[in-house]
């Protein structure tokens, strides 16, 4: 058996046909993980008991594989009466799994704001809400933008796990071609290259964003 480049080329359109699914899943999961992670981090700051609970939750999530989470949600949720489409289960699973990491991103993003910023804002007479929304939140968002971007790349690279719960994304479609044609090498190589190009491109974009955010005009 040989590697058939012509056949590999014919698989490309089919695989790229679902690139939209892959990217949307990654975007939605990144949003979900950010919201969850940010909530964890805010809750963690609310007192010593919440801090302990949230710390444990985050550590639990970070100590368990994404595949185990996907299986758990995929098989347990219906048992509990929540029958969701596989796509939704997949997004939920990635959101939970990556929230453990996003929580750390938000922690670092908040901790990197000097204490004097809130003090200066308060000294001007701003109320709590204005201190957060005009002084702290914009700085936090700037601090987390690049790390969130990097985690988006990680999430994107984790989307093929969703093939394990039958979500029709790029790896899934490659495996479909493989089982129909009994040729595994070509579609898998193609999907590998597509993911590599996608990941490298977005990572480069994040690097540019980082340079822009921390360039001469800002800090």
């Amino acid at each position: 058996m040989n590697f058939d480049f012509a056949f590999a080329a014919t698989t490309l359109p089919t695989i790229l046909g679902v690139i939209g699914t892959t990217i949307s899943v990654a975007l939605l999961s990144c949003a979900g993980a950010s919201i969850l992670g940010f909530s964890f981090e805010i809750a963690r700051r609310a007192g010593s008991l919440p801090a302990y609970l949230m710390r444990f939750t985050i550590d639990f999530i970070r100590s368990t594989p994404v595949l185990a989470w996907l299986y758990f949600l995929y098989f347990v949720l219906p048992h509990w009466g929540f029958t969701l489409p596989a796509l939704v289960v997949g997004i939920l699973g990635l959101s939970i799994y990556f929230s453990g990491y996003l929580a750390e991103v938000f922690k670092a993003g908040i901790d990197a704001i000097p204490k004097g910023q809130a003090e200066a804002a308060k000294a001007l007479g701003l109320n709590r809400i204005d201190v957060v929304s005009f002084v702290l939140a914009p700085q936090m968002l700037r601090n987390v933008a690049a790390p969130v971007g990097n985690h988006f790349v990680s999430i994107l690279k984790a989307t093929p796990y969703l093939a394990a719960i039958a979500v029709p994304e790029m790896l899934g479609s490659a495996l479909d071609i493989a089982s129909n044609t009994y040729r595994y090498a070509e579609p898998l190589t193609v999907v590998g290259i597509v993911f590599l190009v996608l990941a490298l491109t977005i990572a480069q974009g994040v690097r540019l964003l980082e340079r822009k955010l921390h360039g001469p005009t800002n800090r």
């Binding site: 040989n2 984790a158 989307t159 093929p160 790896l171 190589t189 590998g192 993911f195």
Partner: peptide, 23 residues
């Protein structure tokens, strides 16, 4: 480095599992 780091590990596994025998 970037090949190993930036590829999706699940896809690397499938690729090497199925492509190595081909060569």
């Amino acid at each position: 480095i970037e090949f190993w780091r930036s590829s999706a590990v699940i896809i690397l596994l499938f690729v090497f599992y199925y492509v190595l025998p081909v060569i």
